[in-house]
Write a protein that binds this DNA or RNA. Structure first.
Lengths: 222, 222
DNA sequence: CTATAAAATAAGGCTAACCATAACATTTTT
DNA sequence: AAAAATGTTATGGTTAGCCTTATTTTATAG
């Protein structure tokens, strides 16, 4: 049915693809950025993934996952987010660190362990960063929401998920209480890619646009 | 103080060394056997470990761990055995599989996660295979017991630990109820490296010598 | 003390993932 | 339509960890 055993690197590429655009084409250099490798290396790897039938690449148009690739990617996501739940709820690991640690564990997790873990956790549907956890059968509908960067002055919204992966970014956001479930109001949007001024709880915070991109929100009708 | 980050392969070598002889010299080909690599590869790797100050190798005499190497090795053991406890007690993974799964996880476990896991598990002292779990500070006294292979006809003993690592061997032993805590009696020791005949519970079982080597027991005075 | 077995080393090769630099192709902008 | 920006490919290099096939060194048993 699905795939035997994929290298850690392969899993990271697949996960990156599903994380930064589900179903749309991704330019290879965008992938490279997210994975912290050079575009040349990413191209090389994409070729290898193509040979394995995991992605299809149309030069100058982008890559996307094949059916097989998406299955594998969703499976990685499942493992990762289950570990996130465990690390957060049971081990009480600090929120900003769980992504990093879960990411190491995910590659070392056999199917039997994944399912036992899911059962132990009570089949959670959401991870601590707010993202949905794919089901065993691979069914998975990505969060419907918009990026915080798309809001206008005066908009009110609830934070659905925080998709940052770097520990320091997560820490920065955590310090400002920008966490799943919180509600916020956009006080001001500065021009020229300038920062957003937000009111979260009763705090006023400035947030750069690039960080705001990581925050998925749902507009609250007002 | 201790070491930054060791590769998975490095950790496996260190663990193998502490597992198959604590404090005694090990011949490199013995290491190679346990790790499933050729003696040539093991020699190469031992050289690299030597350069990192983790082992010291005296040609034709054997290798042993340096202080630094032993610290690292004991740390790996700690992580591994903690995961074994989690997999067995909480995830209810089958006994014969926990070594294999724990072994993957151990290499992906940061210190913060290790300690949080230990706390979550209630600082267990023993893993499901019967081995002691090293403490955070690295203190660790190996089990004192003898190998089942050293027993004589008529001896009675209690099984302290089962040190096999291969899943199929563990399964074989599990099927014959050769598990930590069980008591047994040696019915017969066949000559010429022949099998032992054992009475475990009320069952009579024949066990080859090489498998018996994996079983650590304590003689019961009679 | 020499013969044999065991351990070690030498030499050359392979793979997955990375890197840099440079050339080339395509898309987008002006 | 030309220039600029972006994406891709070519080429050659690196590292860790493995491999095989000799060859050499040492330990040990007769």
């Amino acid at each position: 049915m699905t795939v035997r055993h994929l290298s850690e690197s392969t899993e990271m590429y697949l996960k990156a693809m599903v994380e930064l655009s589900d179903h749309e084409m991704v330019m290879v250099p965008r992938l490279a950025e997210r994975l912290g490798v050079t575009p040349v290396s990413a191209n090389e790897m994409v070729r290898r993934l193509g040979e394995q039938g995991l992605v299809s690449h149309t030069p100058y148009k982008g890559v996307n996952l094949t059916k097989k690739g998406r299955e594998a990617a969703v499976n990685v996501l499942r493992r990762q987010r289950l570990w996130e739940v465990f690390l957060h709820d049971h081990l009480k690991i600090e929120w900003s660190h769980i992504y990093e640690y879960a990411c190491s564990l995910e590659h070392a997790t056999a199917p039997e362990v994944t399912e036992a873990l899911a059962a132990f956790l009570g089949d959670p549907k959401t991870c601590p960063r707010g993202n949905p956890i794919p089901a065993t059968d691979g069914s998975f509908k990505p969060l419907e929401g918009i990026s915080l960067g798309e809001l206008k002055t005066g908009d009110k919204a609830r934070i659905l998920a925080v998709n940052a992966t770097a520990t320091d970014v997560l820490q920065y956001l955590q310090e400002r209480d920008i966490l799943p479930g919180r509600e916020l109001r956009v006080v001001e949007v500065a021009p020229l890619q300038g920062p957003l001024t937000l009111e979260v709880g009763s705090r006023i915070t400035a947030l750069g646009l690039s960080m705001a991109e990581f925050v998925i929100v749902k507009l609250i009708k007002s």
